[in-house]
Design a protein around this nucleic acid. Sequence first.
DNA 1: TTTGATGT
Length: 280
Amino acid sequence: MLRRRPLRRFAVSLLFVVVGGGLWHLQERELRDSLVWMGVPEWQEPSLTGFHRVLRNDGFLVGWSDLRVNPLWASYRLQAVESPESGPRPAFRRDWRTLWPIGTNHYAGSGFDRGHLAPNYAIAAVHGRDAQHDTFYMSNMTPQRPDLNRRLWQRLEEVVMDHFVPRFGAVQVITGPIFPERFLDNVLNRVGFVEIPEAFYKIIVVPGERPRALAFVMPQGVRGDESLGDYLVSIDAIEARTGLDFFPRLPESAAKVLEGRVDTRGWGLEEVANRPGRFE
DNA sequence: TTTGATGT
């Protein structure tokens, strides 16, 4: 009798681990699903450069690559709010989850900005103060040239929050960096530990029965005053350059329609494509 | 400052 007790104790412990772990997993999946549309992005084929782990933040998810020392994507939902406000700008923050020592001065003197993926203003306005703080994690930053970050990219983010969100009521955004095709060609092109992307993508989806999407790719070397329309691409084109599958749960037939072409009808892009930036 | 870096 006494001899069987350790075994029983082990069985009970195992039960707790399995049930508890299962519950945790379910809850985690639910939380993730609430922050993405049609599934968490996946890599199309197993590869070192595609590997990422998901960092969950307040209001947004980040796919973190320990190899590129970059966020490969950030995903968040924006819905219309009565009076969008962001409050004062928080300080940048080290993120210990990255393991890599990326302090807030990591980009100093490099000629690159600490460019947000999940944006400060829109996340703050929609998801509140705690979420805003999370956008200042260094794990949400990637090296961006100032003329892109402060001008063309800023204009795009402004159009998303001030034009698309009110127009459609809610949108899902996925955004991230694009690296040269061959990993080794760019492996030493870094700010400290952080690999420097050659371009950035942003995908905006209006969820619904018949979802619509608009997608952009913007290279580092812009002036900043270009028309947003010059950078329209299909989602397929972005998947080809990143190796990611952005909406793994979207049925194939729907994906073909949504991802295969550029369709600007109904977005009113021409009204805002040349809107000047805020800081020029 | 709806983006940031720089310098004190």
